[in-house]
């Protein structure tokens, strides 16, 4: 829009300029013709000389008239020529002008074109720049978005990694716990065997079977507290011989505190609060 006005006003300016140049060229061509300015002076001189004879005058007049006519005709002719010339000149000028105009126009066009091109280029450039900028911005934006996205992804990844890590850790821990439990249970079996052996020894050394009939058996349920102290002994199954049962109870009581691990956690894990004893001495 802006561009249209600019181009129009420039065209008007060029038209005016062209007419001025054309007028200037016309004046120059008149100047180039036979000196019309001297003629009137001559005429004045003649007139003064011819005034004495009327006939002559008349003749003169006629002649003058003729002359004038001739002159007029010549002038006319000359004007026509001039006009013709002018016309030609004009024509020529017009052609030149036209050419010039054309050239001008061409130039202008070219210029305009150039300008347009320039403009376009500029515009394009601008556009490009803008586009570039936009692109850049877009890219920037994209970049930021990308960055954000990346960050988000990274974050997510990180989270996921963290989650994974936690999960894996958890699994590992579970696995470890399971393995530990397995190992623990394996160790516990050994530990229990050891504890059993220790308690066995301790009770056997206090189980006085002196004078007791053979072939008897009784079962005791014994309650312990951490540290191995016997808190309660229950006769679950009697041998039928009260002295035998009593000796068994005494053996456990006398062996108290039973040799159990000092560590309460182990004590609890191994479920040592209750132990069942079967007293069944071999003959």
């Amino acid at each position: 829009m802006e561009l249209g006005w600019f181009v129009k006003s420039r065209s008007a300016f060029y038209a005016v300029l062209l007419h001025i140049i054309a007028a200037a060229l016309l004046i120059i061509s008149l100047d180039l013709a036979p000196k019309p300015i001297n003629q009137p002076k001559q005429n004045i001189n003649i007139v003064n000389a011819v005034t004495v004879d009327k006939k002559q005058v008349e003749k003169e007049l006629q002649r003058l008239k003729n002359e004038e006519q001739q002159k007029e005709e010549t002038g006319k002719k000359r004007l026509a020529e001039l006009e013709k010339k002018q016309k030609e000149a004009e024509k020529k000028l017009a052609g030149a002008e036209k050419k010039h105009l054309e050239e001008e126009k061409k130039a202008a066009d070219a210029k305009k074109k150039k300008e347009l091109e320039q403009e376009k280029r500029e515009l394009d450039e601008q556009k490009l720049a803008k586009l570039e900028k936009e692109k850049e911005e877009l890219e920037q934006k994209h970049k930021i978005e990308e960055e954000n996205k990346r960050k988000a992804e990274e974050e997510e990844k990180k989270h996921k990694a963290e989650d994974d890590r936690i999960r894996k850790e958890k699994e590992l821990q579970q696995q470890l716990a399971a393995e530990e439990a397995e190992i623990q249970s394996g160790q516990d079996v050994q530990l229990i065997d050891r504890i059993k052996a220790n308690i066995y020894r301790s009770v056997v050394n206090n189980f006085n079977k002196s004078g007791l009939p053979t072939g008897l058996s009784c079962i005791l349920r014994v309650q312990l507290i951490p540290g191995g102290e016997v808190t309660n002994v229950t006769l679950v199954e009697s041998s039928g011989n009260s002295v035998f049962d009593q000796r068994a109870v005494t053996a456990v009581n006398k062996a108290s505190p039973l040799p159990v691990p000092d560590d309460i956690e182990t004590f609890e894990r191994l479920n040592l609060r209750q132990i069942q004893f079967q007293f069944k001495p071999e003959e």
Binding site: Y200, N271, Q274, Q276, Q278
Partner: peptide, 30 residues
């Protein structure tokens, strides 16, 4: 596996669950 393990642990009569059982097959004669 863990499930099986825990079942095994649960079933293990020695360490988990049932009371410890000790057979006193000997004694002193004092």
């Amino acid at each position: 596996n863990q499930w099986i393990l825990s079942i095994l642990l649960f079933l293990s009569p020695i360490a988990y669950g049932a009371d410890l059982e000790i057979i006193i097959d000997k004694g002193i004669e004092n």
